[in-house]
């Protein structure tokens, strides 16, 4: 564990100076990797990070010493911005790994927080970069990832699937989706799944069957993935949250690669980005139309 003194100093200073009302970060948890410690009054953590790291919600400067940051801090804290009790404490600061940083940039592009309502205590790898506005965070993200990063194992798996006949792909996916219990942990863990009412919760009309059966599971997993197209920063929170171990990153990575390949869109790098689904170009691929 690196004590990261300047992180703690910055967090304490921001709180002391009244620039933020809340700092969201990570703290150590003696209990190791069991269930998450839920802060008083706060929502249940959507995901317990491994390695004994727990989310920390710090409102008083003197508690900033609890903050830690290291490679074990894998939970995407940006997901907490969905919570009304967290939003009520803006302006706030959030400890931002590269993954969290990209989520924040993406959320800024979708006007999910007002300018100045959020500061990042930014990390690049395990190196602390200081207090960053969203614009600076985006610059950091662009610097850190000049080329899109894709998991090569996932790439191999996707290539393997692509070589199969459609029916075999359908069977393979059906077998996996059939395990889905529709617990929506994936949704809860994802910072981008912030709809006040998810379309699956809509019952008039009910587009997506809520029963944990093949058709509803297929529709849910398709629409979840599709709604992330051009928005998913591939942080992996959904897949880590899934208690059934569904290969959600295959879908996410596939669509992210499509967004990059077809439309040159990489999520989480530009806080002024317009939505991929919601813009168009006359030169977009037209080859699949007869």
């Amino acid at each position: 564990m690196s004590p990261t003194p300047s992180l703690r100093e910055d967090a304490a200073r921001l709180l002391r100076e009244g620039r933020v009302k809340l700092v969201i970060g990570y703290r150590a948890h003696a209990g190791g990797g069991q269930g998450p410690a839920v802060p008083e009054g706060a929502c249940r953590a959507p995901l317990a990070g491994g390695g004994g790291r727990r989310p920390a919600f710090i409102e008083e400067a003197h508690r900033a010493g609890e903050l830690v940051f290291d490679g074990a801090c894998s939970q995407n804290l940006a997901a907490y911005l969905k919570k009304p009790e967290v939003r009520a404490r803006m302006p706030l600061a959030i400890v931002a790994s590269e993954a969290v940083g990209r989520s924040l940039v993406s959320l800024a592009a979708e006007s999910q927080f007002a300018q100045g309502a959020l500061l990042a205590l930014a990390f690049r790898g395990e190196r602390y970069e200081g207090v960053k506005e969203v614009e600076e965070l985006a610059a950091l993200a662009r610097e850190a990832a000049p080329e899109p990063r894709r998991d090569p194992d996932i790439g191999r798996r996707l290539a393997e699937l692509a070589a199969w006949p459609a029916q075999r792909r359908a069977e393979w996916w059906s077998a996996r989706f059939s395990r889905c219990t529709r617990c929506y942990a994936c949704r809860a863990a994802c910072p981008g799944c912030y709809c006040q009412r998810c379309v699956t919760e809509r019952n008039v009309p009910q587009w997506v069957s809520t029963a944990a059966l093949g058709h509803g599971n297929y529709a849910w997993n398709m629409i979840r993935a599709f709604h992330q197209a051009g928005r998913c920063t591939l942080c992996g929170a959904c897949a880590s949250a899934c208690p059934q171990g569904l290969p959600l990153m295959l879908l996410n990575t596939f669509l992210a690669a499509q967004a990059a390949e077809q439309f040159d869109v990489e999520a989480g790098l530009d806080p002024a980005a317009k939505p991929l689904i919601g813009t168009w170009d006359p030169e977009d691929d037209n080859s699949f139309f007869t």
Binding site: E110, S111, Q112, Y194, C195, Q196, R197, K274, P275, I277, G278, T279
Partner: peptide, 13 residues
């Protein structure tokens, strides 16, 4: 209005 999360996709669209 009650359900709008103000992602602004529609505004751009």
């Amino acid at each position: 209005r009650n359900l709008c999360s103000h992602c602004r996709s529609c505004v751009h669209t």
